[in-house]
Design a protein around this nucleic acid. Structure first.
Lengths: 216, 216
DNA sequence: CGTTATTAACTAACAGTTCAGTTAAACTAA
DNA sequence: TTAGTTTAACTGAACTGTTAGTTAATAACG
């Protein structure tokens, strides 16, 4: 009989030393889960990395799965909100696209674990997180804004005929796709100057996209 | 002390009933591994799916990891070779791109397990398969051919200035990226007519790419 | 017969989870 | 002040279900 998640999560004062420990656990978990996946991750290893006793993880998070979800949702929420904020300041299409592109560029460079975790969730048919993220992205309004900008440009006659959805998908995949497939792509095309390539990536994508979409 | 893989793999005559069993095992393994990943996959479950006793897996494949690699490499080899063959018959850039696009479209639609397995390998920092695939793709000559076609078009003055590698990466990611990120993208953009969308995808990608790359 | 194919039953180890505490600080109240 | 009480933070070790991998025996078959 599986009862609901009734973790009696204790609440450390956010400034106490305990809060630091909690964060260290989350940090260690992020790394371990990214490297090994949920099934492959070892609770002992997370504990060791965080420098705490294994039982403490259960004291704070109840169970492995719970710890995993906690780890991810916190991070995702922040990233999407930040991206939305960057969009706020832009006015035309090019600026908007560039802003989004640069944002994910930075986010993924700063935390290489994130692409891995995303990959793992995408691979899992029973993922509960993918729908949750999708919802969050949608309600962030980012896709709507970009779609709106495209529609406006089009009605101004500056864009040629193409299926809007396909174009948007193209932009997203060009942008995110590289970070996801980098391990494979870099080897196939023998891209050794990863850092540089990433730095150029955002602009290259926006450039190709806009040219591909404009009237000629 | 880890000794080398000394599996005494027996060789069933390819026409015997045993060959059928072997293939059934491989098939079951493909599904299980795609759904659960290597760590998450359960040997018992694979055996059950294949309708054989667990010990038989070990009789044929020695160990879980070995079975996993066998499963994938066989499939990958076939796919890449087939793609290369389709390229053979084409002459200009557009034809070539379309051929490759359509090929992966078909391959991934026919076997939805493959994108999942690819995702899982990409997520694994210690993947031994990613380098192997990269090598195979490189030696298939596909990237070289496409690069060659692009360079030729450019020297004929039909393409504008852009970084070749970035463009090639853009093409690959637009194409493969959708299949990898479909679970997320479909929800965000509310794409419900998956089949139709996929059918249009190849052409849309080639179209956007060529327009993005040509002189104006 | 012997080689190949297949199985039921077993085991050793591992890994998630729980338990029965310990420590130390914070908080009484006499 | 101090002795007693409570509570959050933390731990070592045990518990238990699971699972990769083994074995030894048997069926099929040429």
């Amino acid at each position: 009989m599986k009862t609901e998640d009734n973790t009696p999560t204790p609440r450390p004062n956010d400034d106490s030393e305990a809060a630091g420990t909690k964060r260290r656990i989350l940090e260690a978990a992020l790394v371990e889960f990214a490297e090994q996946g949920v099934a492959g991750a070892r609770v002992d290893r997370i504990a060791e990395r965080a420098g705490v006793n294994k039982a403490l993880l259960y004291y704070y998070y109840g169970k492995k799965q719970h710890l995993y979800e906690e780890t991810l949702t916190a991070y995702m929420r922040d990233t999407v909100t930040a991206a939305r904020l960057r969009l706020e300041g832009t006015k035309d299409l090019q600026e908007a696209l560039t802003a989004v592109a640069h944002h994910y560029q930075m986010a993924f460079l700063a935390r290489p674990e994130i692409p891995r975790l995303l990959l793992r969730e995408l691979a899992d048919p029973g993922s509960a997180l993918v729908p949750r993220w999708a919802e969050r992205i949608r309600e962030s309004g980012i896709p709507t804004i970009i779609r709106g900008l495209l529609e406006q440009e089009r009605s101004d006659g500056r864009l040629r005929e193409f299926e809007l959805r396909q174009a948007i998908v193209s932009f997203i995949t060009m942008q995110l796709g590289y970070y996801l497939m980098a391990p494979l792509i870099n080897r196939v095309l023998q891209i050794t100057d990863y850092e540089d390539f990433v730095k150029q990536r955002g602009d290259a994508v926006v450039d190709l996209f806009l040219n591909g979409v404009k009237t000629r």
